[in-house]
Nucleic acid binder design. Structure first.
Lengths: 302, 302
DNA sequence: CATCTTATGCTCAAGGAGAGTATAAATGGC
DNA sequence: GCCATTTATACTCTCCTTGAGCATAAGATG
């Protein structure tokens, strides 16, 4: 038996959340766990550093898989995959490595609601989901399926919940609307826009995105993705990029400031359009002051 | 290399949260993962069923450990432990099995604040933590340590946050105030009340408690621990038992009812003191209606 | 009947969240 | 210089939630 580490490494550049990929963007970076390390975390850090040439910021475990039929590869059934979420900045990655950065919405175009719900959602996805629901054996199951679809995707005037990334992915998988679903039996047409990935890497990515979208609401982890100094708008754009939805600017600033998450550097942002903005830095002291308790971002769903 | 499953199985009986233990209450049930199963979840369910003679309700993965020096046992360094949280009811467990149910506050007496903060907290724990803080090399570190103590334990008029179970455990471990901390170097005096456990099982239990305390606030998982029919007070007592703190009765009922989590059965509780209470049952429909979205319990910390 | 205990209905004030208005400070085109 | 455009920043207003308490109801027990 072997154990593999799979990493969801996230960075945000110019309002685009990106993840580190290998093999032309078709897989997440992964590698065998070496027992030489004291813990899984240190193993992951060492391994990422070797791959990318740069240290890792915030790290958090995601999930451990051991499903036999899961990998789609019958030759390696006795393997456990331990997945991690890691936050960095793109510019930190050294040159000459195999890794690339790919926008995460390339894999999940239905997860970006910043400009409203994507057009293809109502136009083509919803009908296909409806068809899938109709294909259930009993009327009760049909209603149940459709209810599930409209809740997870926010159809029929329901609110869209940005945290249900994994549920949406699994629904599409179950409805066989993504290539990963048809792999075992040879069918593999891409019914819905979005790049597929090897094995279940896209599911792991969905888990990571969901976790991060939940986390930014109560922990100051966004700052791991930002440069040392930033404007409040940059901060807001990063949050919006991760959450996949826009927030009210004034309320956002009110919340950030009343929580004393940031402090002015005294400098002013250069090279900008419009009125110049003050530069801020993260108040690292809050990590000690409030420890693990809570910080809030205006991303609740009503 | 091997993989082990470790289970935190929780039940609530008469307002006492209990966990399934083996070896006289000194360990959590655990066993090797058999690759015969399709997934970790099914392996865990099969295994728990074999041990306890009864099926398992809600199951959720907790954490995967692979720290070499972690187990304290040099003979089995190449092992991965995958821990799970499972919810049942005590009465469901069959007879003639090795397992026992032990109150979880036996292991974490400092986590029960239902009757106010436990007396030994201020009387003996706080001074010991203060001494530990003082033993830091520099004044800055001393302040930092003490700040951390008072935040995680809610000392000096701070609010107590019931979710910081793991942080409190780790702080006590770091300060060498629990037997587990001294095991490697032979010291092992029990400085603080509370039963220790083998290996890092108490840490895993802390992880499980923390997860459950967080979860009950936004998912209707409490009902997994209750009989099919219950009074609102029973429901409240169960929540309080898990959270380790009391809630305002009227507000609790307001929240439960306005969310339509339960419905009246029409029956009235028998054999009670005081005015008889209506019996309720969980509206399983909410699981479909709101899917994974949100349900709230009045357990926010102000 | 008085008292105890729990159930249950209702009110009130404070704080937070969502949304909008208004004004300030820069740029670039004319 | 004037104006449109873009972004920054300060306030305000209303609705909802939450914490807290008061009051009353309905049973048991002596």
């Amino acid at each position: 038996m072997t154990a593999d580490l799979v990493a969801v490494l996230v960075a945000v550049t110019d309002g685009t959340p990106k993840i580190m990929t290998i093999a032309g963007g078709s897989a997440l970076p992964s590698g065998p766990f070496e027992f030489a390390h004291r813990s899984l975390q240190t193993a992951l850090r060492a391994w990422v550093e070797a791959q990318t040439g740069h240290p890792l910021g915030y790290v958090e475990q995601l999930y451990t898989f051991a499903d036999r039929g899961r990998s789609g590869n019958a030759k390696t059934p006795h393997s456990i995959s331990i997945s991690y979420l890691g936050l960095t900045r793109e510019d930190r990655v050294g040159e000459g490595f195999e890794a690339h950065w790919t926008g995460w919405y390339d894999y999940f175009p239905w997860e970006d609601h910043r400009a409203g719900a994507p057009a293809f959602l109502a136009k083509m996805l919803a009908p296909k989901l409806k068809a899938w629901a109709k294909s259930a054996p009993s009327p009760a199951l049909q209603r149940e399926r459709w209810q599930r679809c409209s809740i997870t995707f926010g159809l029929e005037d329901r609110d869209w919940n940005e945290e249900l990334v994994l549920q949406r992915y699994e629904l599409l998988y179950e409805a066989a609307l993504i290539p990963e679903a048809g792999r075992e039996n040879g069918r593999g047409a891409s019914i819905v826009p979005g790049k597929p990935m090897t094995s279940d890497h896209r599911r792991i990515l969905a888990t990571g995105i969901a976790r991060l979208r939940a986390k930014i609401k109560y922990r100051p982890v966004v700052f791991e993705l930002l440069p040392a100094e930033f404007t409040l708008l940059q901060l807001q754009r990063s949050v919006e990029a991760l959450a996949g939805r826009l927030v009210h600017k004034q309320n956002f600033r009110r919340l950030i400031e009343q929580q004393e998450l940031v402090e002015e550097t005294g400098a002013i942002a250069a090279d900008t359009v419009g009125r110049p903005a003050k530069l801020f830095r993260f108040r690292h002291a809050v990590l000690a002051e409030r420890a693990v308790i809570g910080t809030k971002l205006p991303l609740s769903r009503t």
